Computed example of a mutant assay.
Amino acid sequence: MSEHTTDMSERTDAGERSGFDLGQGPGRLLVWLYGVFTVAAASRSIVQMIMDFGRAPLAYVLSAAAAVVYAFITYSLVRGGGRARRAALVCCAAELVGVVTVGTWTLLEPSAFPDATVWSDYGMGYLFIPVVLPLTAMVWLRRAPR
């Protein structure tokens, strides 16, 4: 990490040093998991859109949207600070709503999803991590030192 990046992560929104980075301690595992899920969801959606977009456009676009949400949460956790914490909390809540909505939709109307998304069946294809991850991140973001 460059000196500039480290210095930025240690400053709060008011400019004073906080001495805390959201990406340290247990937050480091969250950063890693969100980074992995960013790559997984983006790769999956890109390949699916290139290979056969007409087959399940909704599923592929939802996987791409999940990748964007994961990327933003990863960025927010790495950036640190009060605004990044709030942004990550909002995105984690949106992610959880997405997982629950898409998960329920895939169970009630499977024909709408001829191909799975990252959030299908509450993330069953990813060992339910997509439903557990935002809950864990929200707990960490609320309890971690400010």
Rank of each mutant, 00 (worst) to 15 (best):
L22N: 07
V97C: 09
Y75D: 08
R142K: 10
L29E: 04
R142A: 15
P130F: 02
P134H: 00
A87S: 14
I46D: 08
M49G: 12
V118F: 05
A84E: 06
A144F: 15
L141I: 02
F37T: 03
A112E: 13
S111F: 07
V68N: 01
M49V: 15
G80A: 11
W119V: 01
D121Q: 12
A94Q: 15
V31H: 04
Q24M: 09
L141C: 02
V90I: 14
A84C: 08
C92A: 13
S76F: 10
E95Y: 09
S111Y: 07
W105E: 04
F53Y: 14
L89A: 08
G82H: 13
G98W: 03
D121R: 11
A112W: 14
A144P: 09
A64Q: 05
R17Y: 13
R146P: 12
I73M: 04
A88M: 11
F72C: 13
L77I: 08
A93L: 10
A56K: 05
L107R: 09
P110M: 04
R85E: 10
P134D: 00
V99K: 02
T106P: 05
L62A: 01
G82M: 10
S76Y: 11
R146S: 12
S111E: 11
A84M: 06
C91H: 12
A94H: 15
A66D: 06
L62E: 07
P26W: 13
Q48C: 01
L108P: 08
T5F: 10
V61N: 13
G27D: 09
M51I: 13
D52T: 04
I46C: 10
T6W: 15
G81I: 00
Y70M: 06
V99I: 15
G103R: 00
A87R: 10
V100A: 02
P57W: 08
G98M: 08
R28V: 11
V97E: 04
S76W: 10
G35W: 01
A42Q: 03
I46G: 05
Q24G: 05
G82E: 13
G25L: 12
A88P: 11
V69P: 05
D52N: 14
